[in-house]
């Protein structure tokens, strides 16, 4: 699916990356805990999150996230926008809550960047 379709489905506003909407995305990861994003999010995935600070952009960059989708009507901080422009990571924002965002994308064929985490991971 193209990022432009994701934008359409989620009725999202593009804050950064208007020129990158032709990129293809197939997978997603949703979390507000940056340590979990670091641990589990995979390169090329969408990151669905309610965090709006520049830390999200840094984390996304280090995991080679394709695009950040802010959920729950959140808007990125100016620092996050500046950093996303610099690091060339698209930021889209949707009013849908994370559950709805995930549900809708899943029903259109986007899958998790991984399915399960084994509990042994945390030991």
């Amino acid at each position: 699916m193209k990022l432009s379709e994701v934008k359409g489905i989620l009725e999202a506003r593009v804050f950064v990356g208007e020129d990158k909407l032709d990129m293809e995305v197939h997978t997603a990861f949703g979390a507000d805990l940056m340590s979990d994003v670091m641990a589990f999010a995979k390169a090329g995935s969408l990151l669905l999150t309610g965090l709006t600070n520049s830390q999200v952009v840094k984390t996304a960059a280090s995991r080679n996230i394709a695009a950040i989708i802010l959920v729950r009507g959140k808007e990125p901080s100016t620092e996050a926008i500046d950093m996303a422009k610099e690091l060339q990571i698209p930021i889209l924002a949707t009013q849908y809550i994370l559950f709805e965002t995930a549900g809708i994308l899943y029903s259109k064929g986007i899958v998790g960047c991984l399915k399960k985490v084994d509990s042994d991971f945390y030991k």
Binding site: A102, L105, K115
Partner: peptide, 8 residues
């Protein structure tokens, strides 16, 4: 399951 898969 991760949150995305759980919700989906």
């Amino acid at each position: 399951f991760i949150l995305f898969e759980t919700a989906g």
